[in-house]
Amino acid sequence: MHALIVVAHPNPESLSHGVAAQLANGVSLSGPGHSFEMADLAAEGFDPRFGTADIAVHLKQAPPPADVRAEQARIDRADALVLVYPVYWWSMPGLLKGWVDRVFTNGWAYDEGPDGTLVKRLRHLRVHLVAIGGAGLRTYARHGYFGAMKTQIDRGIFDYCGAHVVTSELLLPSETQDLSGHLEAAGTIGRKLFAPERHAEAA
């Protein structure tokens, strides 16, 4: 089985990249027949700006541009989509949000009819979210930030398209600022990405 791991951070030495690499290593160690592709949106220069051409795609007046079709093809090849990203202003970075805005198009991720009917077209896709936060657990709990993120991202984006969010992790700093736990958690997620019990759980 194949995973597409998307990382959205401009610094290749970032913790986000380290977590993505450990997750990919976990996939490699999970057994024969499992593979991954790494999509480094910043390094690849993906343009997240939603412009007039994207509006035409949304209205089904034009086909998606080449860069969007390439990203959709990557997802179509994958059995699992993994997003690894830092938390900016209690959500995903603009680069990743723009990727979602442009790639998860009307007619590919979902079909919205003129009468308001909705067809969810990504029911086959399993999604794993790994967010890396800078604030402590008390801050997230006190203000309900993680719950708000799950409503916005897990349900607002992926459930709308029919994709099943299997893993939704929020990695937060410890009191000792030891980041090894984040890397260990990422490796575990990667090793279990295609575990049989996950498919049974998602059914």
Rank of each mutant, 00 (worst) to 15 (best):
T151M: 07
L193E: 10
T188L: 11
A203E: 13
P196V: 09
D111C: 10
Y85K: 00
P65F: 03
L137C: 01
S91T: 13
L29A: 15
G134Y: 02
P114F: 13
A185K: 14
L81Q: 08
S28D: 11
K60M: 11
A42W: 12
V130R: 09
F104N: 03
A56E: 15
E197A: 11
L23A: 05
A73L: 08
A195K: 05
V68Q: 10
A78T: 08
W89K: 03
K192I: 00
H34C: 04
L171R: 09
D115A: 12
Q177N: 13
Q61R: 15
P12N: 06
H182I: 04
V7G: 02
M38P: 02
A8Y: 01
E44T: 11
D101A: 02
L125V: 06
G144H: 10
A73E: 15
S14F: 07
G51N: 12
G147C: 04
E201N: 01
L183T: 02
I153V: 14
P63L: 14
L183V: 07
A56K: 15
E112K: 11
K150C: 08
N11I: 01
L179M: 12
A195R: 07
I157D: 00
K97G: 01
R138S: 14
A73F: 08
V127S: 11
H128I: 00
T151V: 10
Y85R: 01
V82G: 05
W108F: 06
R69L: 14
A203W: 03
L172W: 10
T188D: 07
S16M: 04
A78C: 03
H17W: 12
R142A: 13
G190L: 02
A163H: 07
R155Q: 13
Q22H: 15
A53Y: 01
I75S: 03
L29P: 04
G156T: 05
R69F: 03
P173W: 14
A42N: 11
D154Q: 12
G31T: 01
Q152Y: 06
L122D: 00
V119E: 14
K97D: 00
S91V: 04
E13D: 15
A20P: 01
P86Q: 07
L15M: 13
Q152F: 09
F194R: 08
L81N: 04
V19N: 04
H143F: 15
S174C: 02
H2A: 12
P32R: 15
G107C: 02
L15T: 13
A20T: 09
L15Y: 09
L125G: 06
E13N: 14
Q72T: 02
R49Q: 09
G31P: 00
Q72K: 08
G45I: 06
A141Q: 15
E197I: 03
W108A: 10
I55C: 06
A3V: 06
A21H: 11
